[in-house]
């Protein structure tokens, strides 16, 4: 099964200084997977997805991709953006960066790239903000713009790291509707503490707290690590 995986972690470990963040992680993500990643704060959930995406280097084990870096189509909504919001970019310009791979080097963006941006902005109710600068956005608006950037490139792997934090209810519904409408082959990894009914429908789930263990999806809504359940 691992051979057919889109991406697989094999004996993956990560240390920060002397602290073990993750150890002995084995995980295979298949095309079309809908995987919920749960875990306590500081359990290593974000580190795991960043390792899978190649944004961090593992200190042990390895990440194996079915494609070369150039062939991958990735969408990523980080928990905390790594950029400076003072950078003079408009929302539409930032979202267009999610199509850089489509364009390839030395080629201008094409009409279909711009059309894809228009479509995703309309989908996420961002059309009125297309010419707004990033400094002008509220936290929720910025998160929606990041979601638009992650989706505009039609990813085969979409990683959402706590995407609903700072989103209002209408925006959450829009997001989950958009995720549900993704092509069946697109794998989705969701890091979350919020998995109520009518949100993301995972095909499987794992608990990450330094190590990884599978969780039963039918019992997931009762899990104490999810908002509104257990002892918080």
């Amino acid at each position: 099964m691992v051979e057919a995986a889109l991406v697989a972690a094999r004996g993956l470990g990560f240390r920060y200084g002397g602290d073990v963040v993750l150890a002995g992680i084995d995980l295979a993500v298949q095309p079309g997977d809908r995987l919920a990643i749960l875990g306590p704060n500081g359990g290593g959930k974000s580190t795991l997805v960043r390792l899978l995406l190649g944004l961090l280097r593992p200190t042990s084990g390895r990440v194996v991709w079915s494609r070369s870096p150039r062939g991958r189509r990735l969408g990523y909504v980080p928990q905390f953006p790594a950029f400076d919001r003072g950078f003079p970019l408009k929302v539409a310009e930032m979202v267009l960066q999610g199509r850089l791979r489509e364009r390839g080097p030395l080629r201008r963006f094409r009409a279909e790239d711009l059309a894809a941006v228009d479509a995703i902005l309309a989908d996420l109710d961002l059309e009125p903000l297309r010419d707004a600068f990033l400094t002008e956005l509220s936290g929720g608006e910025l998160k929606r713009a990041l979601i638009a950037r992650a989706l505009v490139g039609e990813p085969e792997l979409l990683v959402l790291d706590e995407p609903t934090a700072s989103l209002d209810e209408a925006s959450r519904r829009k997001l989950w509707a958009r995720v549900a409408a993704l092509p069946a082959a697109c794998a989705v990894l969701l890091v979350t503490h919020d998995l109520g009914p009518g949100t993301f429908a995972p095909g499987r789930a794992v608990l990450v707290d330094r190590t990884l263990e599978p969780l039963s999806v039918p019992d997931l809504h009762q899990h104490p690590l999810l908002c509104g359940h257990g002892h918080g």
């Binding site: 150039r70 990735l74 990523y76 950029f83 950078f87 930032m94 960066q97 999610g98 850089l100 490139g153």
Partner: peptide, 22 residues
């Protein structure tokens, strides 16, 4: 002229640029 978009992408958000294959 040749790589303006890539340079802007790297200057703005290295992580996104890396995921886009830059």
């Amino acid at each position: 002229a040749l790589f303006g978009r890539e340079l802007v992408a790297v200057a703005f958000d290295e992580e996104c640029a890396r995921l886009q294959g830059v």
